[in-house]
Amino acid sequence: MLFNVHYRLERRTTTLLIGIVVAASIGGLVEIAPLFTIEGTVEAAPNMRVLTPLEVAGRDIYVREGCYLCHSQMIRTLQDEVDRYGHYSLAVESKYDHPMLWGSKRIGPDLARIGGKYSDEWHVRHLIDPRAVVPQSIMPRYAFLAQRDLKTAELGENLAALRAVGVPYTRDMIDNASADATAQVAADSSGAAALLKRYGEATNVREFAGSTSRVTEMDALVAYLQMVGKQTNIEDDAGANKKPPDND
C-alpha cells in the first residue's frame, strides 16, 4: 500500500520531478539561507570604504583578464598562510565584492593583502613585463593595459548597478563617477578634492601609471590592486595579534 505512493510517483513524471527537486533543495536551503540571516556571519566594520570609480574599473579589468583564475583573494586561517600573506581574510572584507573573487587556485600567490605592499611603479613594471621583475614568473604580459585609455564615461552605470545589488554608493557618487575616475590620477586638482570628500581622506590619489593627464586601464588596475585588502582597517587593528583562531 505504502509503495503505491512511490508507484504513482514514477508513473507520473511530474511527481518524480518534484521528488527530485525536493530532495535536492534541502541541502542548499539549509546551508545558504542562514548565511543571509544569521548575524555574525559577516563581521561589523563601521569604517568600511567602497571602491572609487577608478578602482571599480580596475576590478572589472581584473575580472575581464581572468586574474582570479591564478590568484586567490582568500587567506585561510592556517599559520603558514598568515605568515606568508598576512592576517587571514574576514568575511566583511569581501562584503562589497559582487561577485566575490576568492578564487580556487594559486598558480600565482594570494592577493588578498596586496594593497600597499609594493609601489605603483613596481606594479606597472610587473604588469608590463613580469619577468623583468621576477625572472622565474610565468604570468602573462599585460603591456597593452598601459596603451589603452580607460572608458570613464559610463562608470556611473557600473556604480548604479553595484548600488542595486547592495553596495552603498550615493547618488552623488554615481553622478560624478566619470569625473572622479579622471580626478583620481591627478592629485592637487579640484576634482581630486571633491573625490576625497566623497570617498574619504584615505583614498589613494596619485598618478598610478605615471601620467596625470591620461587615464589608462593600467591606472585603473593598479589603483584597484593598491586597494585590495584595504577597504577595512582589519590588518592595522589586528596589529601584532596575527595568530589564526583554533585550528584542527
Partner: peptide
C-alpha cells in the same frame, strides 16, 4: 526572520 531561523535551527538539530 531571525526568529524563524532560530525555530528551524532547533527543529533541525
Amino acid at each position: 526572520m531571525t526568529n524563524l531561523y532560530a525555530m528551524l535551527a532547533i527543529f533541525a538539530k
